[in-house]
């Protein structure tokens, strides 16, 4: 146990610090939906409203882990000619105004085709702190491990309700935070979360102190309260993307209100 705590101390970085003395609220949105200028404005507004970390989705033509809401956001962003290079430029602009930890969420192909080393180098330069890659399981992590490490980015570990005997193997390597997937299936708002999250978190706690944030399906303050009693953080994606889909360029105020409300619900 001592070794683990020591190991984690060394790894302590910008991302894990957001969990140090409070429960964290993590907001996801897709870059370029409806435009990169708006994405920049939305991120700064959510930061001001109390979000602790922003996950920025780099849109992909075939987001196989996403449900219809985020898939549609990917399509809107790509139709607006959003590219990885333009997203890096937007992140650099945000970094002039905000120190909030930023994590990219994207699929392996956009990273690999951009050039894995080139991608992580650009992330470091722009001020990105970590990446989440839904189609990169533990077994294939070698694809990015070195590049991420040499540029100081965390590759966020995902743990699913089906991970079972894999949980401890996955958790041992985790840095930044652990993304615990609340439910089976793809992203999307859910009325009920049935997974025994407490049991999974207990398994994780046996091998690491890396904070655990729960995502997939969370939309309401009630859900956020319940989840934050168990976990170190709450991740909201589809509910935010839905607000953007509904209000488009005028989403700044409703997003700000929503983040305020969700942040206040954390216990």
């Amino acid at each position: 146990m001592n070794n683990i705590v020591a190991a984690n101390k060394i790894e302590t970085n910008k991302i894990s610090q957001i969990f140090a003395d409070k429960k964290a609220f993590i907001a996801f949105l897709t870059a370029g939906d409806p435009s990169l200028a708006k994405t920049e404005e939305f991120i700064l507004a959510m930061d001001a409203a109390g979000a602790d970390l922003i996950e920025i989705g780099i849109p992909f033509s075939d987001p196989i882990a996403e449900g219809p809401v985020i898939e549609a956001a990917n399509e809107r962003a790509l139709s607006a000619s959003t590219t990885t290079d333009k997203i890096f430029a937007m992140v650099a602009r945000i970094r002039e105004k905000s120190t909030i930890p930023l994590v990219f969420l994207t699929y392996m192909n956009p990273i690999f085709v951009y050039g894995t080393e080139r991608f992580f180098s650009a992330c470091e330069k722009a001020g990105i702190n970590g990446v989440i890659i839904p189609d990169l399981p533990f077994e294939e992590k070698g694809e990015v491990r070195e590049a991420a490490k040499s540029h100081g980015l965390d590759v966020i570990t995902l743990i699913a309700p089906t991970s079972q005997d894999r949980i401890q193997m996955l958790a041992k390597e985790a840095t930044g935070f652990i993304y615990l997937v609340s439910s089976m299936g793809v992203t999307g708002v859910r009325s009920e979360i049935k997974t025994d999250l407490a049991a999974i978190i207990a398994d994780i706690r046996q091998v690491t102190q890396t904070p655990v944030a729960v995502g997939f399906g969370i939309a309401t303050p009630e859900q956020a309260t319940t989840i934050s009693q168990l976990a170190d953080g709450v991740i909201v994606g589809s509910a935010i993307v839905r607000i953007i889909a509904e209000h488009g360029a005028a989403a700044t105020a409703p997003l700000s209100d929503y983040v305020h409300m969700m942040k206040a619900a954390l216990v």
Binding site: A65, P134, D135, L136, P137, F138, E139, L158, T162, S163
Partner: peptide
């Protein structure tokens, strides 16, 4: 080749 698949499906 390889196994580039979401964690949710890995055990399956």
């Amino acid at each position: 080749g390889g196994q580039y698949t979401p964690e949710t499906l890995m055990n399956a």
